[in-house]
Every structure is written in structure tokens, then in C-alpha cells.
Design a protein around this nucleic acid. Structure first.
Length: 972
RNA sequence: GCGGGUGUGGUGAAAUUGGUAGACACGCUAGACUUAGGAUCUAGUGCUGCGAGGCUUGGGGGUUCGAGUCCCUCCACCCGCACCA
């Protein structure tokens, strides 16, 4: 009886589906465990072998936890709103809803093919009205709340109105505008519009005018993390800064909480560090410098080094700073205008590319140094960013690298405040040593000087201690069609939440069907074209839609209660499942999705909707599986003006010729000679002519990896794929055409995609699952390597042969197991359990292989060993386990409900090893060894006694006994 | 530049608190059974040496009876941030 994986797997998939074995209940006496994968965006290309890596790991862990007696929630869904579907619609006219539906169906089919234990009844799709109804509802909660800085939590806007009516905003500074100040009377005197404008400056979801990243090609604004290296993350289009009316989330109010509660999370240090970096907290001070010649003009700077204030040699403003035009002197006006024009002309990309270049311009104006009363020149330069701090700095060349470079470049005299620590060549940026030449700070140690300086600044009334964050409020508008519409209606130009004008808000505000996805007028979204939708009897609708991260910021909550149509999830459901215990996904969401999810969770917690404030307790990042691309090298002719012309026949040279050619170890002439020889031998009369104007040029082309075995090209397959290649000439080495290889991202255009369906078809889902795990640690990225899968497949077949014989069928016996067999079994149980717990699935698979190899050589077919082994392998190879469980051991229920085998300690102690026993002073060669633990411990004890004796007699002893396992270790 | 991480055979990788480095698998070599095999099985496979042996975890140094593992230093690669005052 052969291992017929395709029949077996089909059979069990049907069984699982028919019997609903993966349905999860919210009502269980078992402890809960919530394990979640980052849900995919269903793209048209379908899944490739890289996608399931994390899903397989989480599936194994979920099944393991279930067998360990937990009620496990392990759901899957789809992040279905987004740009690609809309762009596809623009190109083909197919509605995004249609293509999305199609893609999801394909994804589900591919996922089911691998045998995951999802409860599909809990599936969520962010683009479904019954889902985005609650996305809109949460948006309204954000809209209807503000952040109380004293209580450090979100509260409803109604509370704020009550406060304003009683005392104005004197105790609650405006986060948008710290100069805004009004009392109760002033509040009462405001018009409806003024009141709402004021409240808008407090709301957690608010509308504001701000400079945003605008992408002309995509016709939309982008969030900071959607802009990479000055171009859009998707498509790589150029972006510019533009003032636009936008929706924002006031994430900056949560900066501190997002930072501090990171410490409690079991995330990798790298991941936490990335978030810390993004939040970018820095402690320092704000200091005021009065501008000379203006009674009421001053420059406020932010600095982390107030201790270096006596080293200030000049001030620098961002070119966009408000004061620039006011303070610039008549003589400098032209130069400043010129410089500002230059800055504006430079794209973000150029600015980033030329970080090192020093540019700037003097305004002609001066400030007075608050302590020395010296006059200090004011410059502008693009190295000071308008968006950070106050958009102005005090420059201390002796203590800051950039200021130093600037001073040197413009020959501004440098004041040394570090004595011999500053050498005149490079700024002294260390925080050790003492200050000199620094007035009242002279002689003070740098480690204490910051506090002293801040106190003096406060006493002088020119500033205060200040915390600054790099993080900006999160842009929440997109001028796109395929996203959640805002539940916002403008009445007389004032934005109102729909639940302020209609009872319950009439959610969801459904996305209308359209046929035209082109952007609306004046940078508005496509929805602006749908006049019958925009116009309601109450007013006009907001035509922006929410960004991609809106739906994914809370989806983990919806799985808990996915069909609820009166709440986003019932309190009892969220109280039962609480936060995600284990979250698995890639690192690419470090600062986007993961940060926004944390924000939404905190807000929902503050408002009393859920009782936990972090969404993901433990986070595991899986690596990527990259593509293993193959190249063939086609020749063309090229002249010295880089014009290429093709040869009469396609000519491909094997990898080593290409290497010789590009490394100049074969001449142009010799190569042509070789090629012509090959052409002749293959019966082609055409010869490449020698031509001094047109030289040979090598073009690497991706070749479909299915035409290649290892690195050897199957020439016939390639020829069949394209008629153009029928009469191509292949220049071979050792009779073979060898391709070039490169590891790249898996993508259709690189012809290196491997579809999991094909692997499952050839080897079965169980082999595929185990192989992906066997490839290496799950957090490491690596290229897909098809060759190794045979080894895992061989293992599964070998395991099968322990249970079944090709001729006689099932061969499991009831014989009693020997000690050696039991030992092997329990060692395996212990190792597999430990490995799963610490997410080391590759070593777990290895252990299975060792176990099966040994059982094979022991010729062991005993039920006492094989039955627990079957249960043990269930998380990895569930189909195989079910088949064996039922046929060999006569079980009627599914193996999924069998408890994970327990190991017996008496079999797991390994005394086959040699344990070192030694005392201090012996060399390695002199070390003594014991054969087993007990003996080692005994000898160690004897030796220890002697040594302790010596020590008590006053003789020096440092350290002595070392035994593996239990270390008996006395240190004096 | 700053921050984080990783360096082990021809390849993917093991070695959980310092304890016989290279488990397991791929690949390769030889052999067996085969009409054939890209099936299966057996043996070998870090380097070096006929051999006993010697050498070996990116380089150098240190702590330790003992270091892939801990410390210092240099080098290489990967990831993230990047004029953040």
C-alpha cells in the first residue's frame, strides 16, 4: 500500500469541512489562546510559496495549543480595500469589488489546499459593508473624542464642551495651537462655526490644513510611511509637499503612551526599536532669542543641548519659517529670495540624495544672545526642517557636526566651549568632560550641565524644558475610490458626523457603485464625481475615503464576534478573547499597521469599549522566501553611441562565457570566433561579422525557472515557449547551457514564482508544510530551493512504511516496546514539544527524521510507539496523521482532539554521554570524565569535598566542579 | 553617520543555561537491486595527512580546567532610520 497523498489529503479536507472540526466557540471552559496571522491583501497574482511560511508556523502552533487543551482562535480574513484593485480597475474597467471577490476566492482555495485550521465562519473582509460599518463607527468614536492630558486618556467631546462652558480652555491647552486661549464667556459668545472649528482642534480624528505628501501620478496624498526614499512606496512615483485639507488622527497625543507600553510587549528588540525611532522622543529645551531691531519678534529654538548655549555662533531658520521675510534686511532680500527659490526647485529626492552638501543664506538680521548679550547672525538653510521642533535652531559649531560643517563652509568664527576636547577640526559631540568659556556653566561637568542650563533658562524667563517627538499626526484621507467612505456630511461648509444629524448615523455609509474611477476636480477623489451620492437632503458628503490601514487597525477585534450587527464586537467576546496572544507577520508593518492598531486599541480602551490596551502581546516576524531567478545571456551589437541592434539569429551564451566576457578574460574577437564555430556545428551558415563600429553586448534576461533544472537550461522547453527562439544559437559549456542565478523578490515579471498549488500537487500538503518549516528558522529570509523538498518527502514516505507495507497493507503490531524504543519516543516527545514552544520548527522536523530513521533501523512497527508518534506529528502533517490514526489504531474521532503526548522523564535523561568532571588547575587533557550523570555527580562530590577541605585550610581555590546538566559550582 | 542584527562544510543549517562543533537534510562519490530510472537500499563525505595525528565556527586578543556561545577590538554582509537640532 503506497502513500497516496492526494487521495488521503482530499479525503480529510472533506471530512474536516463536513464535520466543521475547526469551528471555534466563544463559550468554553478551556483557557483561551488567540493566535493571528497578518491577513493578506488579495492580489491578482495569487499566493506564491513565500506567503504561507508564517501561516504554516501559526497553524502548527495553533494545532499544538489546541492539543494542549486550549480553546484556540486562529482566524483568517482579507485586507480587501486598497490601491492595486483600483488601479487595475482604471486599466481594465473591471469593478474592484469584482476583482477583489475573484482574488479572495482564489486565495481561499490556495490556503485550503495547504490544510490550515481556520474557522472560515469567522472570516472578515474589510471591504464588506457589514465590516466597514464598524470601521466608520470607530472613526466616529475618534471624531467624538479628545485627549485629556492630565488624565492621560481619551474622553468624549461632550465632556470637553461642558468644560469649555464652565472654564473655557484655560486648563486644557489646545494641542493644535498652544496660543489659543479663551474663557467660558468667550466660548459662549462663539458662533456655531467658531465652536466647531475650535472643537476640531481637539478631536482625535480631525480635519486640518497641512502640508502632506501629494503624489500626482496616483492622484492622492500618502502617509509618511507610504513614502520611501522620496517616492511612493507603491509604484515608485515622485511625491511633493502640498498644503491640503485633510483628515488626521491625533496620534501625537499618544506618543508617550505608545512609547512606554512598548516595554511590556514580547516583540523583537529590532521591532520595538523601529517604533521608538519612529516616535522619536527627545528631551531638551525651548529657548527664546530676541531679534534685534524688532520689539516683539523672537525666535524660539528647540535644542537637546541647552548646556552648549554659550557656544552659539549663529542661528538657522528653516527656509519656510514664518519670520524669514519679516526680518530679512533690504540688502539680503534678493539673496534670500533666490535661495528660497532654489530650495523649492529641489525635489525631496534631490534633497535626500545630497545630504552632505552645505547650502544656506544670511538674512542680514541678528538676535541677542540671552546670556552674553552678543549679537548672533541669523541664517536660513535647508538642513533645518520646518516640520521638526520649532523650525529653528541655535547653532553650536564646536558641539554639533552639521553646525560645524556649516560654519566652516561659510567661514563663521567658531567659539570653543570644550577647551582641549575640541580640536578645531571636528565638532566635539561626546557628553563627557567639562565646559569652558561658558559663563556660569564654566567648569561644570557635561553630565550635569543640561539640568543646570535648563534651570538658568527658566529663571531668566527665556524658555522651558521641552519634550519633542519626531512622529507627526497620521494623515487619514485618500483621494481614492476603493476605501471606506467617511461618515461625514457638510452642512453650510461645517463638517458633521452623520450620527449628529441622523439617529445612529445611518451606518454604514455605503460606497456607491461607479463606472469611472478617475480623480475628481481639484485633487478630490473619484467620489466627487458621483453627485447623486454626494448630495443628501442634509448636506454634502465627504468625498475622501479612508486609507488602507483603517480596516486593518481593528480587524483582530472583529474575529472575536464577526457576525455582530449591533456592536463591532460584544463586550463578552472581547473580554473572553482579549488581546492577541501571538501575532505572526512580516517586519514591513513595523511603523504602519502595528502602530495604528496600537493607537486604536488604546482609544477604544480609554473610551471603555474594551478592557485591554495593547492589541498584540507577542509578535513573531517571519522572514521572506525570495525567488531564485535564472538568467540567460542574449547577445546584441552595440556601437559607441549605445545604439543596440539585434543579431540576425538570437544568440545566447552560457554563463561562463558571459563571465569571461564581462571580466575581459576573453576578447571580443575570440568570443565571435567561438560563437561562429558553434553556429557552424549546429548547421547554421550565419556568422557574426567582425565589426569595429558594432561591438558585442551581453543582455541578461530572466528565464522562466520551470525551464531550468538547477542552473542547467532545458533548451527545448525555452524554444517551445517562443517561436522567435526556434533558430536560436546556444553557445554551450561542457555540452550544457548554464544559467546565471540571482536571489530576488518573488514576482511574476522575474519569472521566478513558485505556486504552492504545484508543490502540493507534486508532493502533497504535508510535505509542503514540513519542508517550508525545515528550510531554516522562520525569522530568516532565504531563497526558495526546490531541490531539498525530496528529502522531506522521502521522510514522510519512510514514516508511512513504518505503518504500512506495499504488499501486505497495515503492519502495526501490539508487541511490547523495548526500553530503547521508549527512550527514543520520549526523547522525541520532549524535543518536539520544546521546539514548538520556542518556535524552532526546523529542528522539530529534524527530530522527526531522526526518530523515523532509528525506528526504521530497529524495524519497529509497534503500536505503543507509533500511536503517540502519530499524535505528535499532527500539527505538522495533519492529513497523514488522520489517515494513520483511523486506519492503524481504529480510532473513530479525529486526531485533532487527541491530547499532545506527555513525556516520561525517566526515559529522557540522557546518560549515554560523557560528562566532564574537573577541578581548577587541570588542563583539558587532564580532565576527568564520567560516563553518566550519576557517576559524574558522585565524583564531583568527592572532589568537591577535597577542595572545600583545602579552602577551609586556607589554601586559595577559585572555582571547581563542572558537570553538565546540573552544575555543581562553588565560587569563592 | 546613527540604531539593530548576522558571520559555522560545496549548500540550507544544528549545537536550549559555556561541556566530545558540524545533528538533520540537500548535493556529491562509490556500491547493491534493476530493461531503465529523477525509485529504493548500503557505505563514505569539514580541511590536511599513507598513517598515528594535526588543524577548524570572519580576523586578532582576553576571561575560563574548558569558548561557536561571554568580554574587547577589527573586518564583512543584511535590515531599519537618515540633515530630527
Amino acid at each position: 500500500m503506497e502513500y497516496a497523498f492526494s487521495t488521503i489529503e482530499k479525503k480529510w479536507k472533506k471530512y474536516w469541512q463536513d464535520n466543521n472540526v475547526y469551528r471555534v466557540s466563544n463559550d468554553s471552559s478551556k483557557p483561551k489562546y488567540y493566535i493571528l496571522d497578518m491577513f493578506p491583501y488579495p492580489s491578482g497574482a495569487g499566493l506564491h510559496v513565500g506567503h504561507p511560511l508564517g501561516y504554516i508556523a501559526s497553524d502548527i502552533y495553533a494545532r499544538y495549543k489546541r492539543m494542549k487543551g486550549f480553546n484556540v482562535l486562529h482566524p483568517m480574513g482579507f485586507d480587501a480595500f486598497g490601491l492595486p484593485a483600483e488601479q487595475y480597475a482604471l486599466e481594465t474597467g473591471q469593478h474592484p469589488a469584482v476583482t477583489t471577490e475573484k482574488n479572495i476566492a482564489r486565495y481561499k482555495e490556495q490556503l485550503d489546499n495547504i490544510g490550515f485550521c481556520y474557522d472560515w465562519e469567522r472570516e472578515v473582509r474589510t471591504s464588506e459593508p457589514n465590516y466597514y460599518k464598524w470601521t466608520q463607527w470607530i472613526f466616529l468614536q475618534l471624531f467624538h473624542s479628545w485627549y485629556d492630558r492630565k488624565q492621560q486618556k481619551a474622553r468624549t467631546i461632550k465632556d470637553l464642551i461642558t468644560i469649555f462652558e464652565k472654564e473655557g480652555n484655560t486648563n486644557n491647552a489646545c494641542p493644535d495651537d498652544d496660543k489659543l486661549c479663551f474663557d467660558a464667556k468667550a466660548w459662549a459668545g462663539m458662533s456655531e462655526k467658531e465652536k466647531r472649528d475650535t472643537l476640531m482642534k481637539y478631536r482625535l480624528a480631525f480635519q486640518g490644513y497641512a502640508e502632506v505628501w501629494w503624489c500626482e501620478a496616483l492622484g492622492t496624498v500618502l502617509a509618511n510611511d507610504e513614502v520611501v526614499n522620496g517616492v511612493s512606496e507603491r509604484g515608485g512615483h515622485p511625491v511633493i509637499r502640498k498644503q491640503m485639507r485633510q483628515w488626521f488622527l491625533r496620534i501625537t497625543e499618544y506618543a508617550d503612551r505608545l512609547l512606554t507600553s512598548l516595554d511590556k510587549l514580547e516583540w523583537s528588540d529590532a521591532m520595538k526599536e523601529m517604533q521608538r525611532n519612529w516616535i522619536g522622543k527627545s528631551n531638551g529645551a525651548e529657548v527664546r532669542f530676541d531679534v534685534q531691531g524688532f520689539a516683539d519678534k523672537y525666535i524660539t529654538v528647540f535644542t537637546t543641548r541647552p548646556d552648549t548655549i554659550f557656544g552659539v555662533d549663529f542661528m538657522v531658520l528653516a527656509p519656510e519659517h514664518d519670520l524669514v521675510d519679516t526680518i530679512t534686511t533690504a540688502e539680503q532680500k534678493e539673496a534670500i529670495t533666490e535661495y528660497k527659490k532654489y530650495v523649492q526647485s529641489r525635489s525631496e529626492r534631490e534633497r535626500m540624495a545630497e545630504v552632505k552638501q552645505v547650502t544656506g543664506c544670511f538674512t542680514g538680521a541678528y538676535v541677542t544672545h540671552p546670556f552674553t548679550r552678543k549679537q548672533v547672525p541669523i541664517w536660513i538653510s535647508e538642513y533645518v526642517l520646518a516640520s521638526y521642533g520649532t523650525g529653528a535652531i541655535m547653532a553650536v559649531p564646536s558641539g554639533d557636526d552639521r553646525d560645524h560643517a556649516f560654519a566652516k563652509h561659510f567661514e563663521i568664527p567658531i567659539t570653543n566651549i570644550f577647551g582641549s576636547n575640541y580640536n578645531g577640526e571636528a565638532a566635539y559631540t561626546d557628553k563627557t568632560g567639562t565646559l569652558e568659556n561658558s559663563g556660569f556653566l564654566s567648569g561644570i561637568d557635561l553630565s550635569k550641565a543640561i539640568d543646570v542650563a535648563i534651570r538658568a533658562i527658566v529663571d531668566a524667563g527665556i524658555g522651558k524644558a521641552k519634550v519633542n517627538f519626531k512622529m507627526r499626526d497620521a494623515g487619514f484621507s485618500r483621494q481614492r475610490y476603493w476605501g471606506e467612505p467617511f461618515p461625514i456630511v457638510y452642512v453650510n461648509g461645517i463638517p458633521y458626523a452623520t450620527d449628529e444629524i441622523e439617529n445612529g448615523g445611518n451606518l454604514p455609509v455605503e460606497l456607491p457603485m461607479v463606472e469611472n474611477y478617475k480623480p475628481g476636480p481639484e485633487g478630490e477623489g473619484p467620489l466627487a464625481n458621483v453627485t447623486e451620492w454626494v448630495t443628501t437632503d442634509k448636506g454634502t458628503r465627504e468625498t475622501n475615503t479612508m486609507p488602507g490601514y483603517a480596516g486593518s487597525s481593528w480587524y483582530f477585534l472583529r474575529y472575536m464576534d464577526p457576525k455582530n450587527d449591533v456592536e463591532f464586537a460584544s463586550k463578552s467576546a472581547t473580554d473572553y478573547w482579549r488581546e492577541v496572544d501571538l501575532y505572526i507577520g512580516g517586519t514591513e508593518h513595523a511603523v504602519g499597521h502595528l502602530l495604528y492598531s496600537r493607537l486604536w486599541t488604546k482609544v477604544l480602551h480609554d473610551l471603555g469599549h474594551i478592557s485591554f490596551e495593547e492589541p498584540f502581546k507577542k509578535l513573531v516576524n517571519q522572514g521572506m522566501i525570495q525567488g531564485n531567478s535564472r538568467f540567460i545571456y542574449r547577445l546584441t551589437l552595440i556601437n559607441n553611441t549605445k545604439e543596440q541592434k539585434p543579431l540576425e539569429f538570437p544568440v545566447f551564451i552560457s554563463h561562463s562565457y558571459r563571465n569571461q566576457f564581462v571580466h575581459n578574460t576573453i576578447s571580443h574577437e575570440e568570443l565571435i570566433k567561438t560563437i561562429n564555430k558553434f553556429a557552424n556545428e549546429s548547421g547554421t551558415e550565419y556568422e557574426i561579422p567582425f565589426d569595429n563600429d558594432y561591438k558585442i553586448h551581453v543582455n541578461p534576461l530572466h528565464v522562466d525557472i520551470s525551464f531550468v533544472d538547477g542552473v542547467q537550461l532545458d533548451i527545448e522547453k525555452l524554444k517551445q515557449s517562443k517561436s522567435e527562439y526556434n533558430n536560436a544559437i546556444f553557445v554551450l559549456e561542457d555540452g550544457k547551457y548554464i544559467c546565471g542565478a540571482e536571489v530576488e523578490k518573488m514576482s511574476k515579471s522575474k519569472y521566478n514564482v513558485v505556486n504552492p498549488d504545484d508543490i502540493v500537487g507534486d508532493f502533497g500538503a504535508d510535505t509542503f508544510r514540513m519542508y517550508e518549516m525545515f528550510l531554516g528558522p522562520i525569522d530568516v529570509s532565504k531563497p526558495w530551493e526546490q531541490k531539498g523538498i525530496e528529502g522531506v518527502h522521502r521522510f514522510i514516505k519512510k514514516m508511512w512504511r513504518l505503518y504500512a507495507d506495499e504488499q501486505t497493507g497495515w503492519i502495526v503490531t501490539d508487541e511490547a516496546a523495548t526500553d530503547a524504543e521508549l527512550k527514543l519516543l520520549h526523547k522525541t516527545i520532549k524535543k518536539i514539544g520544546d521546539d514548538i514552544e520556542r518556535f524552532s520548527f526546523n529542528t522539530a522536523v529534524s527530530q522527526f527524521m531522526i526518530c523515523v530513521n532509528e525506528l526504521t533501523s530497529l524495524n519497529c512497527h509497534k503500536r505503543a510507539i507509533l500511536e503517540p508518534l502519530t499524535v505528535l506529528i499532527t500539527p505538522f502533517a495533519p492529513h497523514l496523521a488522520e489517515e494513520l490514526w483511523q486506519n492503524c489504531f481504529g480510532n473513530t474521532a479525529t486526531v485533532l482532539d487527541a491530547p499532545f503526548p506527555a513525556y516520561d522523564e525517566k526515559y529522557t535523561v540522557d546518560n549515554s554521554k560523557v560528562y566532564p568532571v574537573a577541578v581548577n588547575g587541570k588542563t583539558r587533557a587532564e580532565m576527568e570524565f564520567a560516563l553518566d550523570m550519576e557517576q559524574a555527580a558522585l565524583e564531583a562530590a568527592v572532589l568537591a569535598d577535597e577542595t572545600i577541605q583545602k579552602w577551609m585550610e586556607g589554601k586559595p581555590v577559585k572555582k571547581f566542579i563542572y558537570v553538565k546538566g546540573k552544575m555543581i559550582n562553588v565560587v569563592v
